[in-house]
């Protein structure tokens, strides 16, 4: 499974922080994001979130596979 993490307003819109998605051949970050938008229309703003795969910032075309953790990071506001 692919572990998906959502934070801040995304977490609030969904009502939880974590999802498990089935891996599929050739899936990349952008494809996974599109699947989330289709399956969870309440995730408004996910299109502006920065993806991270296994705790490192990733690109839209980064491949994701079984066992990966993909996080969607809304604009940050630490400090």
């Amino acid at each position: 499974m692919i572990r998906v993490l959502l934070f801040a307003e995304l977490e609030e819109r969904l009502g939880r922080r974590e999802l498990q998605l089935k891996p599929e051949n050739g899936l990349n970050v952008e494809g996974l994001r599109e699947r989330l938008i289709t399956d969870y229309p309440e995730l408004q703003g996910i299109e502006n979130a920065m993806p991270a795969v296994n705790e490192e910032y990733a690109r839209a075309d980064t491949k994701v596979s079984d066992g990966d953790t993909v996080a969607f990071i809304p604009p940050v506001s630490g400090g």
């Binding site: 934070f7 991270a52 996080a71 809304p74 940050v76 506001s77 630490g78 400090g79």
Partner: peptide, 12 residues
Amino acid sequence: IERIKEIVPIWK
């Protein structure tokens, strides 16, 4: 501090 506000996944 400027960099924290850009890249560190922390939300207020």
